[in-house]
């Protein structure tokens, strides 16, 4: 008996609109895979958060602290990027799976230009940070350094983007960083008057935690 082709069930999200056709996208999407790997858990984020909190975080010294740790972050991100990018699996048209390669010899310009791009992104991120409620007239330098941290937290994503092209999976990483930063704001009203509440530490720390979770578990999602 010939198998009858059952019409594919579509989920309607709207009462009066025809269902949005999503089939066309499928070919474009999902030609890369980022598997979960212990190698790509960014333990250095924890290290940097620890280092930030261990150093002087009293009012007035936050800025220097964050600048010092920014250099640490950039350096460690460079190393981590190799781990992260080489973990990505590209699926070729013939359904072959192969790992993306990244070598200093060939990709030095990509790595350096991604640093520059991260720096360029600081400004739009700064604007976003202000739009999401950071002080505008005061704490300019603090906000700038916060944006730089946020920008370099997404550095592996920028490199991967240029290496493999635009993939929707990368937005998930960015979303984790953003949600992390957003969550940190809940600590602002607390009247505990601890040093770690100095602006912008709660946001910096929570975005590290957010991106730690993001880089660790997006492979599982």
């Amino acid at each position: 008996m010939p198998t009858r082709t059952t019409p594919k069930k579509t989920v309607s999200f709207s009462d009066n609109e025809p269902p949005v056709k999503e089939q066309q996208h499928i070919d474009l999407e999902e030609n890369i895979k980022i598997p979960f790997s212990l190698k790509t858990i960014p333990f250095h984020y924890i290290l940097i958060v620890y280092s930030i909190l261990k150093q002087d975080i009293t009012t007035g010294n936050v800025l220097n602290n964050l600048i010092n740790n920014l250099f640490a972050l950039i350096f460690m991100q460079l190393v981590y990027t190799f781990l992260f990018v080489t973990n990505i699996i590209e699926i070729t048209k013939k359904k072959h799976q192969k790992r993306v390669k990244l070598s200093i010899g060939k990709d030095y310009s990509l790595i350096i230009s991604s640093i520059l791009i991260s720096l360029v992104f600081v400004l739009p991120i700064y604007l976003l940070v202000v739009l999401f409620g950071a002080p505008f007239t005061t704490y300019f330098q603090e906000n700038l350094i916060l944006s730089t941290h946020l920008s370099f937290l997404s550095y592996p994503i920028i490199v991967s983007y240029f290496k493999t092209g635009e993939k929707s999976i990368y937005y998930k990483y960015l979303a984790f960083i953003a949600i992390g930063a957003w969550f940190g704001a809940i600590a602002i009203p607390l009247d505990w008057d601890r040093d770690w509440q100095n602006w912008p530490l709660p946001i910096v720390i929570s975005s590290y935690i957010g991106s730690f979770i993001g880089y660790s578990i997006v492979g599982l999602l």
Binding site: L131, G133, F136, T137, T138, Y139, P189, W199
Partner: peptide
């Protein structure tokens, strides 16, 4: 999104009733 965020950021910056990060 950006437009609403901008407008609502103005609303937020209008007054400050809390004790923290009192700015202009």
């Amino acid at each position: 999104l950006l437009y609403i965020l901008f407008l609502i950021r103005l609303v937020r910056g209008w007054n400050n009733t809390g004790q923290k990060y009192i700015g202009d």
